[in-house]
Nucleic acid binder design. Structure first.
Lengths: 251, 251
DNA sequence: GACATTTGTTCGTATATCGCACATAATGGG
DNA sequence: CCCATTATGTGCGATATACGAACAAATGTC
């Protein structure tokens, strides 16, 4: 691609949108400029553009995103067959398991939730389509990383900031690579409170009809209710059923 | 705002993202150009920019969005406390009712889903955060419009294209204004197959602790299973409970 | 297989945008 | 209340981008 085929104004604008998030519901021009590392004048123009288009509100001091930005994510969710296809299977899976079930894909070092069927809420973390978790300590992340060639998986881990979210979190890259090999041979991954104390999850890859891994699905359960050791016995058959059904319908 | 404070390259790019959707998972440059009414060369630059940033894939012919675009919508969902706060209540509501429950806010003439807890799939329409429905014929839309000053509500209706989605759809603006007054006095709205044949729904407003309406929640059910006349008796108490709980936690 | 049509790509130029520097306005501590 | 600090707004030259047209490549039609 030639350099002139790149619209930097567009790229800058997207960066500004992403500056909003978690702990930053409202931003001033200067804050957004710092977060995006762009010139204040540029950020200002982007924010005013967003406001003009109805993607943001401006009270003279703070900018806040409006629900209209959901159109952008929705463009993906409704345009991509995957979330649409998976959702009903996820609903059924969640119901049969009596626990929350989710589906995700890998994006860089993170897993991105593309669909979710939640049972009662057990996690402190709120998850919805678009939510992201670090891949290295999530069950679906392990499964998706295991599906990559070793060198690529290693690359992702190298780029990941390996934090010990709990005392149980595995943070050694070599240990994690061993774990991925284990996941690959077993066909599923179990996370025992590595992300959050009290939470276990089990995931399997979702393959299309050509055997390519296109996503992962998981079931999460409170450790108090379902010890990690029991996760496989209780939920693996259900997950495998869903996996099998999906393989037949995903092209 | 001065004209020079508008980044048209950014605006064009966003338009290109929104060109993807429902029936358009993959677009060629020419298709996207037609849909956005932009020059082919311009669209091409936007799409190549998206691909370069990882928001899109390009196989030489078709462009498809990647899960990375979910970051954009997620910037709103995670930046805005509302969806996060509501989700667990919605999950509980859905479970108790045994039907899908949703939350939405008003954006122009449409309601935008900000959270959803789906039970088995009963609707032909696929709904997820970011999905939009015309406000005039949706239960949450009625409730949200009823919360506006009369003149504003009327303004929204004037700007709405009132289509008769089914024989039961109310499309007369005066009839709708009467309906809004009724909704306001009763504190809930029921839609009997006005959006889609076979689908009923009931909604109540969600107020914060200062009594301001900040969203709406609803329960949808198949008309065959739950006639419109029974909606209130079956689900209004549950909705009112949730409404009351939310009023206490929303600031 | 030749022709018509559509689609993708390149290029020159008019125009819009960027980033800087400066002006102005708000904020906050002493 | 003043001054230091930080944030916002604006004019301008250098630079990047959009447009339209022309060309190249692919696709579809007969």
């Amino acid at each position: 691609m030639r350099e002139s085929d790149f619209v930097s104004g567009f790229a800058r604008g997207l960066k500004v949108i992403e500056a909003f998030g978690e702990a930053r519901p409202k931003l001033t021009i200067a804050e957004a400029a710092k977060l995006t590392d762009l010139d204040r004048a540029t950020v200002r123009r982007c924010l005013l553009t967003l406001a003009d288009l109805g993607y943001a509100d401006y009270d003279g001091k703070f900018f806040t995103l409006t629900p209209k930005v959901l159109r952008l994510g929705h463009a993906y969710l409704s345009a991509t067959p995957l979330p649409l296809m998976i959702q009903p299977y996820l609903d059924q899976l969640s119901e049969r398991a009596g626990q929350s079930a989710s589906a995700s894909v890998l994006d860089g070092t993170e897993v991105v939730y593309i669909a979710r069927a939640s049972q009662k809420r057990v996690m402190s973390i709120n998850l919805s389509p678009g939510s992201r978790l670090p891949a290295y300590c999530a069950s679906m992340g392990r499964v998706l990383l295991a599906a990559l060639p070793e060198t690529e998986a290693r690359g992702v881990l190298d780029r990941s900031e390996l934090r010990a979210n709990t005392p149980l979190t595995k943070t050694d890259r070599d240990v994690l690579m061993d774990e991925l090999r284990h996941v690959r041979s077993e066909g599923y991954a179990i996370i025992d409170q590595e992300l959050e104390l009290g939470l276990c999850s089990i995931a399997v890859p979702v393959e299309n009809d050509r055997g390519r891994v296109v996503a992962a699905i998981n079931i999460g359960a409170p450790a108090a209710h379902v010890p990690a050791a029991e996760m496989a016995a209780r939920y693996l058959p259900l997950l495998k059923d869903t996996q099998k059904a999906l393989r037949l319908v995903l092209r």
